[in-house]
């Protein structure tokens, strides 16, 4: 490393603001490191710049169909939130959440609220819940969402410092959400593909084992 310090041309190049250096990746990682909430899966935590779920941000979980195990990704998070005594609001889940199962996983159903609404009103409700700091987690199954709507929800999440997780079947190529995950079921369990994580260029795939029934 001593050579480039002597070369003034290299030095001026290094001071160009548009230049991104691979060694900065580690610095970004450590800056983000304690801002996240662990996902409960060490392999997945290692792929994410926040070492877990981000705070005050929007996450998209894209699945080919409901019920392939995507809820298992958020169960440890729900458990942690329930232990803290914080609230989570579920918007338009595809089925009714079953309270005895949640209780058995260590999630107190008393801190969980389910909102059902017509599609036209749903996004309004999700935005209000994300903006409210009283709500620690918003899970939403909004159906089809556009770029603009995701951007708006992302802004609401950062305003309320709330984690919002949208589940959808993924028609959009890209979005402004802080984290996008694609979940697929495999014979052994789940394959989680990190499509986008803000602050990281890595696109990685993690295999998670599903809990035996």
């Amino acid at each position: 490393m001593p050579t480039h310090q002597t070369d003034p041309r290299l030095l001026s190049l290094l001071h160009t603001p548009g230049l991104w250096r691979g060694s900065a990746h580690a610095a970004t990682r450590s800056a983000f490191a304690d801002s996240g909430v662990s996902t409960g899966f060490p392999a997945l935590d290692a792929c994410l710049p926040w070492q877990g779920w981000p705070r005050g941000a929007l996450v998209e979980i894209i699945t080919p169909l409901w019920g392939i195990g995507e809820l298992q990704l958020v169960l440890p998070l729900l458990q942690q939130i329930s232990q803290e005594g914080s609230n989570s609001v579920w918007f338009a889940p595809p089925c009714s959440p079953y309270a005895p199962a949640l209780l058995a996983s260590g999630i107190n159903p008393a801190h969980l609220y389910v909102v059902s609404a017509p599609a036209a009103q749903l996004l309004w409700g999700i935005e209000k819940a994300l903006q409210d700091a009283a709500c620690a987690l918003v899970l939403a199954w909004p159906g089809r969402v556009s770029h603009r709507q995701i951007r708006r929800l992302q802004l609401a999440a950062s305003a309320g410092n709330t984690l919002g997780i949208l589940f959808h079947h993924g028609a959009l190529r890209q979005s402004t959400a802080a984290l996008r995950l694609r979940v697929e079921a495999t014979r052994q369990g789940l394959r989680v593909e990190v499509l986008k994580a803000r602050g990281s260029y890595r696109q990685s795939t993690v295999a998670l084992a599903r809990e035996a029934p």
């Binding site: 803290e84 005594g85 914080s86 609230n87 609001v89 959440p97 309270a99 005895p100 949640l102 209780l103 159903p109 008393a110 801190h111 969980l112 609220y113 389910v114 909102v115 059902s116 609404a117 009103q121 309004w124 409700g125 209000k128 819940a129 409210d132 009283a134 709500c135 620690a136």
Partner: peptide, 27 residues
Amino acid sequence: TGPARIAPLLGLLQARLGDAAVHSLQC
């Protein structure tokens, strides 16, 4: 934290979506 804190948000959701739109789960 807890239910007392989220009450304003739930009230707001109910005011627009109707009283039946918001429910909690009981075991």
